[in-house]
Design a protein around this nucleic acid. Sequence first.
DNA 1: TATTGTTATACTCTATAACTATA
DNA 2: TATAGTTATAGAGTATAACAATA
Lengths: 149, 149
Amino acid sequence: MPAMRLNEFLPYRLAVVAEAVSHALAAVYGKRYALSRDEWRVLAQLAEVDEIKTTELGALTTLDKMQVSRALKRLEADGMVERRIDDSDRRNLRVRLAPPGRSLYRKVVPMAQARESFLLEALTEQERQTLVDLLDKLLAQARKLRDAG
Amino acid sequence: MPAMRLNEFLPYRLAVVAEAVSHALAAVYGKRYALSRDEWRVLAQLAEVDEIKTTELGALTTLDKMQVSRALKRLEADGMVERRIDDSDRRNLRVRLAPPGRSLYRKVVPMAQARESFLLEALTEQERQTLVDLLDKLLAQARKLRDAG
DNA sequence: TATTGTTATACTCTATAACTATA
DNA sequence: TATAGTTATAGAGTATAACAATA
């Protein structure tokens, strides 16, 4: 009777792999540096820019405005980021990494990269590129599905 | 200063894709059939076997014993599965799909497969196989990381 | 003592939406 | 009216561990 095999069902496989990888990473930024996944994403993204609007931050981290708001609140309370009102549109907040945030980032990144490197050791350079390409295609298709309902 | 780019960080990309795919799927089994992800996995796995021990079910669905216990409790309360004590070792429970569970399964699967098919349309047959292979390698490596700590 | 499975508990995440302030 | 961002709240998912029954 089995009309499908769970273990060959792509969404299942993808979820299992992503969960395992996510766990391996959270052991670094979470257990070791007490950052939530959202805070880690925000921190990592802020390190790549000088100053950025909160809305842009959401788009770049795939987080919604509520997740961004909460992550920033925690990071700001810990002195990791600074926010200031944008005088040209006082609804906007502009965010930037504060020195302690940069310092934290510089501590977390090498460990995160070490884990990523270990994971990537399982693949050749060619395979890594292929994987990223295939994941991209899949993401685009998944978003079509979401947009269609 | 950016020592890494979030958007090129494999764990991030993988999480984003998996989340999008997972959402697309949950729209079917969750919104439409009121099943949690764990219940859906258990249901799908049970459909592939006649009768199975709870512990085996956990291994096959990548769920821990607590998740399995709760998923089964709900499914049993709804009449979807039956459980009976294994007389050769009375600590074990043996689980099987009840007729309403089979019926539910037969309703959910075509819709789940339709979503999977749509996702897979983005890839050639060759690419699908490659993706599965690469994900497998990555999973094995991630598990090494977990086992090492 | 170890294992199967359940339950308790606390914690985190997620989703929806109401709300404030600006525009 | 519409947008940026915050807050409230309820529900779902997760992790740890205590527990009962059996081996």
